[in-house]
Amino acid sequence: MANTHTGTGAQSETLSTNPVVVVRGIGQLGRSFLREVGAMFWFIAHTLDETIDRVRQGRVPFRAASFFQHTERAGVESVPLVGLVSFFLGLTMALLTGYQLERFGTERLVPGLVAIGFTRELGPLLTGIMLAARIGAAFTAELGTMKVSEEVEAIEAMGIGPLRFLVAPRMLALFFLMPCLSTISNIAAIFASSLVCRAYFNMAFVYSIDLVRDALLIRDIITGILKSLMFGLIIGGIACYRGLTVNGGAAGVGAATTSSVVTAITVVIGVDTLYNTIYTIFFPT
């Protein structure tokens, strides 16, 4: 480094103002980001390859019991959390928008607004964030601990593909469960908005549901499902990748778990934004 100052203050000032250092720092960040993205891509590709390879040999890639165990943990046990959070958010959204729209006499738009908002956007996004925190963290910690205690290496040493044995059932469980949980999130929010409409805006429950049916388009539902599937794959992939690349014992497992949750939530929101941008370009109305 060109910097020859000995004082800490002078050094940090030089570091922050020297454009070469700043550019180098940005370059290093970019490089490590691209390396991570590449590694994660190959991780998912190798998992698919190992799984498909196993199917080609005419064998099941993993036991059904293992898959259902993960679907139960990721799906069934997440229902109360997803349902409750979505219900409260649906209530809040209906209340806040309802009072604003009431001033213009358009409060009957509330059920449709909540339904579209959740089906296309908030349902998959909220579910993704909750699953990243609840299940992604659990997967990372579990696989990280297995890695640290040499269990993953033992599986590999037996001639068993650890990616198809450990990663594939977890990723697939999240992939298939995400749309189901998203749907539960949507239903909870729509139900909550119907309750608000009944209580505050004198709309019959059946009328609210009719308004929801009128407002929702098939493409809203498809968009929500596609997003959910993508988010499931992303959360599962990141959680398992972080778990299997743990280094440094218990502290490493902790760091990987935090990193897994932060990365998954950031990537999910980023992908959601990208999806919405592309969607708006191709379907502007």
Partner: peptide, 18 residues
């Protein structure tokens, strides 16, 4: 993976799946 099936390994900390 096929070759590894002919080799057994006993780890220092046993590495049993918990």
């Amino acid at each position: 993976q096929q070759v590894r099936r002919h080799i057994g390994m006993v780890y220092q900390y046993s590495a049993l799946l918990s």
